[in-house]
């Protein structure tokens, strides 16, 4: 059974993957020589579900600004569509086999079974590809917020008065709040608990360093016209906190891009 990257993907694909592997096993053991039931209706249900999924996928490609998503989605959609067509062909072949009067399977029956398995596997694989493409897009979206927050930290070096400080805090707070929410949501969805623990720890550190950064900026503002040791200490603290926060965010970006099996890289 494959390892699923997120609980969302796992919830969708795990039951299908289980069913398909059992079916493949039955087929390989040659226990499926009986005439197949009428498959037209369940296959049409699958075909309709594929059409809806393809429609949503195409709408998403049209609306998104993510160029990688635009490129990666069509092959996955095509795989799902081709597999659904294969299932339709399978049902046509198997309906021929249903008319046989002997116990021996017809060539159509054999071919139909092969297409059924290939089609079911293809739908599983195509849906998996599609969900992973969208998951990667979600990771890129979170990484973008990370980079925006990290880039904004550079503005701390131009804070010289109380007004600058107020503007800086007012701009930094929504970014870090959004980032914390996105990381929290991502952690709820990830299946690898080592990654969840590492991400949570890094995000907690970012949150813990922010009050220190603001205090150091305040101290700098208070000593802006008084060069000396106090000002030097304020600058030193500011650099320390911006570096720490920046490094934690860089680590968050790295952790977000790991896949579920990348256990060795969490340290």
């Amino acid at each position: 059974m494959p390892v699923f990257h997120t609980k969302t993907i796992q919830m969708i694909l795990e039951p299908v993957a289980e069913q398909v592997s059992t079916l493949v096993l039955i087929h390989e053991q040659g226990k499926d020589g009986n005439q197949m039931p009428d498959l037209i209706n369940p296959i049409l249900t699958v075909k309709a579900a594929v059409s809806n999924l393809v429609k949503v996928g195409k709408d998403q490609i049209k609306d998104t600004k993510d160029e990688i998503l635009k490129l990666d989605t069509p092959p996955a959609l095509e795989k799902v569509e081709t597999s659904a067509d294969m299932l339709v062909q399978a049902s046509q072949l198997l309906s021929i086999d249903q008319k046989r009067e002997t116990a021996e399977m017809t060539p159509e029956g054999m071919e139909g079974r092969k297409k059924l398995i290939a089609g079911s596997r293809g739908i599983l694989q195509g849906t998996s590809d599609l969900l992973l493409v969208f998951d990667e897009a979600e990771v890129r979206r979170i990484c973008k917020v990370c980079r925006n927050v990290r880039d904004y930290l550079n503005q701390s070096s131009i804070v010289a008065g109380m007004e600058d400080l107020v503007v800086f805090v007012k701009s930094l707070t929504p970014g870090t709040t959004t980032l914390a929410r996105m990381i929290g949501d991502r952690c709820k969805d990830l299946t690898n608990q080592n990654h969840v623990a590492a991400l949570t720890e890094e995000m907690d550190q970012v949150k813990a360093y922010i009050p220190g950064l603001i205090s150091s900026l305040k101290a700098f503002v208070q000593t802006v016209d008084k060069p000396g040791k106090a000002q030097e200490a304020a600058i030193g603290n500011r650099e320390y906190y911006t570096t720490q926060i920046s490094e934690r965010i860089t680590e968050i970006i790295r952790l977000l891009q790991l896949v579920s099996t990348d256990d060795a890289n969490t340290d």
Partner: peptide, 29 residues
């Protein structure tokens, strides 16, 4: 949006699962 994509993928997953389950049961009997 992504939520709609997940919803439709879930519907497809269920439909495929139902189809495969039907074949599995048929083969097992």
């Amino acid at each position: 949006n992504a939520a709609e994509m997940v919803k439709q993928a879930r519907v497809l997953g269920q439909a495929t699962s139902d189809l495969v389950n039907m074949l599995k049961l048929e083969a097992e009997t």
